[in-house]
Design a binder for these strands. Structure first.
Lengths: 247, 247
DNA sequence: GTAATTTATGGCAGACACTGACAAGTGACA
DNA sequence: TGTCACTTGTCAGTGTCTGCCATAAATTAC
């Protein structure tokens, strides 16, 4: 029981081999110029099998950052509930960096390689942004849960969008020099967080005391003690469709 | 001279017909489920010709918002140079809304329709985000020009990213109710702008006086203030390739 | 150890987005 | 009216991605 079984191990090995081969090819000859057939050939599997590992060609390039997003969401959920939202977010991203620093160096190298490919490929950059924005729904929900507010309010959307932006500027914005180690990435992320901290008013990420609101409404004043006031169920966006690239 | 010539008028007519047909089909049967052949058939042109009007299927859905972005950039360039960056940005978006309000109602309807399609289609939402982010380069350059700073600094990137975020939340975030008129869109945009105004410290969008070295700023270099000299010429992202959807 | 069952893989055909090349039609203009 | 430039259609082809079915390998049952 200690082992995940031969079949599972084989699968993970193939998966990593595909990622490595794909990133190398993307880096060498470009993303668009690389065909799935080439990636499959490099790992000696059939093209058909490639699509059993990754739904799209894009996915193989984005799988690592997506994994990190998952980690971040998990870290966020584990933050203490009384922490201000943005602070919690900041700790959550930092946790991802820490994990990268402490984990297998091979994983870190892979991650940096994928960042390099993504930053140099508009299509992948867009895909990465889409993932982040799809994630925003979850983050908004999580934030609303923490704060006891409604996901329909503008504030949680704003807080999450702003955080996503900071993370993007920190993670994805590559300046004049390509970072070859996580330390540089971590530094840039810290710089972005510091800039946000410097730019924003204290308490901006918590609902304001009711300036001139309805007198009958039970004054949704301080912090997290606010009544849930769950209004309409909120239209579930019909887009059940997952992120398939083409029709 | 008053008329652009028959040929040109015909082209514009076809273009609008394609947009209308495409948006209707997208709205009725979904974006992914609609083929280019169907759109072309609805306007009675060959599929090949469709691609002479729009480079990708995505483009036909995004062309209107993209046009608005162009307008916004132009408006921004026309703002007085001494205006604080974020204020100038805010005026520029407002100008777009004003133009929509005052222009041809048919255009407005088309715009709202495309917004509805985009908001309900992850792939289009991503495409829209990509356009905005590609625009960020231009905005950063423009901002750096206005402020006389370097585009390599973190601050202009942060300001632009934050503004993009506000515009996105204002324009694209559809709450529980679908807006059927621009007034609602305008109101949401104003709410987002107000929220940003409320959240940010005065003067946040201008470089700080080099008075204090930040106590926590241990982070590697990155100095937004001190080293005025942009270092390396800055790698121009090789991505000469335009936004083609697939390889 | 062998048999039965589940699961991964490969090959094939096909839908769809998109492109280059060439031929034919249509507006512009002398 | 005739020439020129531009637009359009047709055709063939590439690449991504999917469904279907047969085969091989691993897991489990006997």
């Amino acid at each position: 029981m200690g082992q995940p079984g031969l079949r599972e191990r084989k699968k993970q090995k193939t998966r990593l081999a595909l990622i490595d081969a794909a990133l190398d090819l993307f880096l060498r000859q470009g993303y668009e110029a690389t065909t799935v057939d080439q990636i499959a050939a490099a790992v000696e599997i059939s093209p058909r099998t490639f699509f059993r590992y990754f739904a799209t060609k894009e996915d193989v390039a984005l799988s690592l950052p997506v994994d990190n997003q998952e980690i971040m969401v998990a870290e966020l959920a584990a933050r203490p509930a009384d922490e201000p939202p943005f602070t919690a977010f900041a700790h959550a991203v930092r946790a991802v960096i820490t994990m990268l620093k402490q984990g297998d160096p091979a994983d870190t190298a892979r991650f940096l390689k994928s960042r390099k490919v993504i930053d140099g490929t508009p299509a992948l950059f867009a895909g990465s942004a889409r993932r982040m924005m799809e994630n925003e729904r979850r983050l908004v929900a999580e934030l609303a849960r923490r704060e006891g507010s409604s996901p329909d309010d503008l504030l949680p959307h704003f807080v999450v969008a702003l955080f996503t932006t900071v993370a993007r500027v920190g993670f994805e914005f590559c300046g004049p020099d390509d970072p070859d180690d996580i330390t540089a990435v971590a530094a840039r992320l810290e710089a972005a967080l510091a800039m946000a901290e410097r730019s924003l008013r204290p308490g901006w990420d918590r609902p304001h005391p009711p300036a001139v609101t309805h007198p009958t409404d039970g004054a949704v004043g301080l912090g997290h003690a606010a009544p849930p006031a769950g209004r309409a169920p909120g239209r579930r966006p019909p887009a059940g469709r997952e992120g398939r690239a083409t029709g």
